[in-house]
Every structure is written in C-alpha cells, then in structure tokens.
Design a protein around this nucleic acid. Structure first.
Lengths: 300, 300
DNA sequence: GATACAGTTCTTAATTATAAAATGCACATC
DNA sequence: GATGTGCATTTTATAATTAAGAACTGTATC
C-alpha cells in the first residue's frame, strides 16, 4: 500500500559498510555527506541513523555521531531480490507476441502480463502506453489494452518506414569521411559475410545475428534519437520474425548475404547511387519475407 | 479508492432513453442486447436494471422485464462533468512547455502537472511514458520525470528527422496518380498562398495556419501510422516555435510562401527532382529558423 | 557574519487496497 | 440448441498510504 523501502535497505547496508571500514569510537560524517556516499536523500539517511542507534551500533546526539561497535553479519537487512525484469521488458514482450503468435485484436490483460513477466502492473501500463505510440497496441473503451500489430497493414507500413530510414542511413554512410569508424566496421563485416557464405550449408542459422550487426552498423552513422528509438523496435520485430519463420531459411539467408555484400561493395566504391539501389533491392526482399512469414502464420 | 462509476451513470441514462422511446408495458430486451446498446458489460446493465426496478420505472423478474412508467427528468442521474482535458493533453502540454519556455533538464512533477492540466495522475504518467518514446522526456533515477527536449541537439535531430520524412512524402506526391485528391488540394493551397502573399504586409500572422495545412497536405499522401504519429508531434513543435518567435516574422513568412509555391510548381510539373530540391531548400530554412528561435530563448 | 549542519515541515511518487466494471461458466428457459 | 439469466471470479481504474525527496528554519562553530 506504500512504496517499497528498497532505497532505505540499500542505504542502511552502505552505512554499515562505512562503519566497518572505520574504528570503534570514530566520528561519523555529516548527514549531507552520508547522502552523497549512499546516493539518497537526507530523510533516508536519518532513518538509517535512528535504526543504527536503536541497534546500538552508533550513538547519535545531534552532530555527535560515533561508532559504538563494529557491525556483524546479522546487523545487515536483506534486500528484496531485485526483479530486474523491467529492463528488457520490450524484448521479452515482443518475443512473447511472436513466439506464441498472438493474433492481432487480442486483448492484453495487464494483470496477466504482470504475472507472466513478473513486472509490477504500473510499469506494464507505462510500457504499453509507450508501445501505443508506435501503433502496436491501443486502449480499449471498456478498459484494458488491445494488440493491434502484426497485421498485413502493419507489416507493410513498418517495412516502408524502415526503408525510408535505412535508405537515408545508406546515403549518410556514402558521404561519411574516410576516417569514420564505419569503414573499418564495414570491412570487418565483409569478412564475416564472406566467412559465413563459405560455410552457409551448415551454419545458416548464424546469419540472424550477422544481419542485425550489419543494419546496426549502417544506422549507427545517423546520430538521431528518433531514428535510434525506432530502429530498436524495427530491428527487434524483423529479427524475431525471421527467427521463427523457418521456410527456406538457408536459401533466404544465402541470398541476403549477397545483397549485403553488394551494398558494402557499392559503399566502399563511394557510389552513392549504386548503394541506394542495392539497399532498395535488399529492403524489398526483407519486406517480401516479412509478409510471407505472416501468411504462413495465418495458415497455421 | 475505487474506479469511478461513470460508465454506470452513462448507461443508466441511455437505458432511460430507451424506456422513453417505448410505450408503457412494453418488454425490455435481453441483458446482452442492452449491453450492445449502451456499450457496457452485463454487470453494469444489471446494476442499471436493479436501480430502475427500485425507482419503480420497470418491473424485473428474470427474463420478464417491463416498462411500468415513462421516466421523467428527475429520474436521470447527473454525470460528473467529463474533464475532457485528457484528449488534447499532448497539444496543451507542448503549448505549456513552449509558451513558458520550460528549459531542458526541468524535473516534471506528475502531481503538479496533474493539477495544472486537471488530468488524473495515472493518465499523465501514461502520457509521459509515451513522450519518452520520442525522447522528449525520460525517467529520473530518483523517480519522477525530466524534460529533455528543446536543446540545440534536439532541434537539429528533430529537423533532420522531419526532413527525411518530408522529402519522402514529396517523392510520393510526385508519383501520385492524376486523380489523387492531393492535386486539387495543392491547387487550392496555391490560391491561398497567392492570396496571402498579396496581403502579406497586414496579415502575415495568418501564415502559421497555412503552413500547417500545406505540410499536412503533403504528408497525407503517405499512408503510414508511424509517419503520422511523428508528424503530429513534429508539426506541433514547429508550429508553436514559429508562433512564439516574433523576430522578422513578416520577412520570414513572405519567404516561406515563395518556397512553398516553388514546391507546388515543381510538383504540378511532375518534376520530382526539382520538387526534392525545392523541399530541401525549404526544410533548410525551417531548420535555421527553429535553431535561431532557440538562441533567442536562451538569451532572453 | 558566513558557513555547515541538524531539526522540522511540506511535497511528491511508488505501491497497494478497494470498489466498479468486465468476464467466464453453469444452469434455465423457450 | 440457441438465447438468456444467475452467480462467481477476474481485472481494471482510482484513491489512500507511506517511503522518499526537497525546502525552509534555527543554531552551533569557526
């Protein structure tokens, strides 16, 4: 019914650390200084101090704070294990949607999602509110949320939008100065592509990661928070879709490697026009693949 | 401490409407049908029915529901005035930020914003979560939110991103079929531009609206939810910034009119390349204006 | 008298309890 | 067996609650 005292617990233990590091009888620094040490507000520090006084570890009378005894293991208060799940919630959510092939129009229950992802409800609400900006989900009039994404329209629009961003990125790369880190990165990527191409028959699964690295490298040239934010979502969606769609994966990946190499060739030749054309070709293939993977899902 | 009974109140009055539209003694349709009429769940409908029975307006025994008397004005329960503020929250928020020139780095208090905009706190939290996807705000480690936007970097990145989207849109327009509505829209816009140009000395303020219409028309050709979502934010920011920045407004707007006309000319001539160039020129001007308006704010 | 500190008070934000609404299932009726 | 109701469970929106933050005030110390 109230917020958790995680900060207090962490701060208390940190102050214990301080006490352990100093001799019995030593003076303890000012409240403000302890705040800096623990990275919390004075309110929390004062709560720590009164608890330490209660426990007989320190004496506290105004400015006069001294260590009475060295704290032992039992003095520590245990932290409630940090769920930590909230961090990659986006990744886990998209993974869940695509893995279980959750159809468009499904109502999403915050309570249920909260359990499956072990994330507090209000964090999930915020997350969904964020996704709604991307048109992936939207609010229902009766309350709750509904999954909109992963229809054909969505895939088409996503692909088109991706193309716009990526073609722009390619144009930027072509104009990048010779000492730009992207060039060494591209050289490295060329090697990795050629390497994988040689052993494509057995290792075609490894392409997914390579694909991500490649597009990441191209887009890293564009320093733009809006592009970056979108790119995160876009790459996740494409990445997972291609991972689950197993039809003709080997041929598909082999073809994609050649398309990537064509882009790298054109870029290294500083032929902006050819690079644009090669990228356009590759993006067209990606779009087709994404659409056909949707079709397969629909049937199954 | 519980959710509001707004839905019940609205549904109750709607059922009253139904009763008024039917004669005394008439049978009332099934609960499920009433749900459809009122757009609520059966729980709410059943609550309405028991209340109607209590009020002696209907008789209710299982399936047998009949109208006993025609409801009067006093039977209605009054709706708590729909705050309605939650709808254009985005517009009002950006307006507030730009009007009061809230500097980047300001901590945003949900409680305070909730009061100034008279919107429940949780809605504001969702709204801010959405904005964080656009990099306008972000969470603070100590809790709460911080306004990131409207630094020089932000303006540059926003302008660049806008350029990418808008140049794409222009390319689309150039390829639009002859019977596409955009052409008549552009013809109309040309007239409005010429009209305003003739009386620019006195009416230069009117340009802001015309500018919005023009860009809206261009972008309407791109049917893409991602573009649309961004365009909303982008146009709001540019719109407001230009509105508050009064330096050389007349000259600036006169120049912009000519730039717009150049774009229209090129498009109507179906000269895609010239249109791109004209648009590029215009976007460059806009970017400069946005940046200089920021500089003025910094000084004053 | 300036500064650093503690005491106090007020505000805000995260979290949970709770009523309202929605949903699901079993049974009844036509 | 299609349609409708009764009852129980689940879920959501919202306010109450408490931890944490922040500001203001008084006071000791140099």
């Amino acid at each position: 019914m109230a917020r958790s005292d995680t900060r207090f617990r962490a701060a208390y233990n940190q102050v214990l650390d301080y006490c352990e590091g100093h001799p019995k009888g030593a003076h303890i620094p000012s409240e403000a200084r302890l705040c800096e040490i623990a990275g919390v507000s004075r309110t929390v520090i004062r709560r720590c101090l009164s608890r330490l006084e209660e426990a007989g570890i320190i004496s506290w009378d105004g400015r006069d704070k001294r260590i009475l005894r060295t704290p032992v293991a039992e003095d520590r208060i245990d932290q409630p294990e940090t769920s930590g799940g909230a961090e990659d919630l986006e990744e886990r959510f998209l993974d869940w949607v695509l893995r279980f092939d959750v159809p468009a129009g499904t109502t999403l229950s915050v309570a249920e999602l909260s359990r499956t992802f072990s994330v507090p409800q209000h964090e999930l609400k915020e997350f969904l509110a964020g996704l709604s900006r991307f048109g992936l989900v939207s609010r229902r009039p009766q309350g709750g949320w509904i999954l909109l994404g992963f229809t054909k329209d969505f895939a088409v629009e996503l692909s088109d939008f991706r193309s716009v961003l990526e073609l722009h990125a390619v144009a930027q790369v072509a104009e990048a100065p010779v000492d730009h880190p992207v060039w060494s990165k591209l050289a490295e990527l060329r090697d990795r592509h050629l390497d994988l191409k040689a052993r494509i028959d057995s290792d075609y699964h490894a392409f997914s990661k390579l694909d991500e690295s490649f597009h990441q490298a191209i887009n890293s040239v564009v320093k733009n928070r809006f592009v970056a934010e979108f790119q995160k979502v876009i790459s996740l969606i494409f990445h997972y879709h291609f991972m689950w769609d197993k039809t003709e994966e080997k041929t598909r990946n082999a073809a994609a490697i050649d398309e990537h190499l064509a882009i790298i060739d054109a870029l290294e030749a500083r032929d902006a026009h050819a690079a644009q054309e090669a990228a356009r070709r590759h993006l067209r293939t990606s779009k087709t693949t994404l659409l056909s993977s949707l079709r397969h899902h629909d049937l199954g």
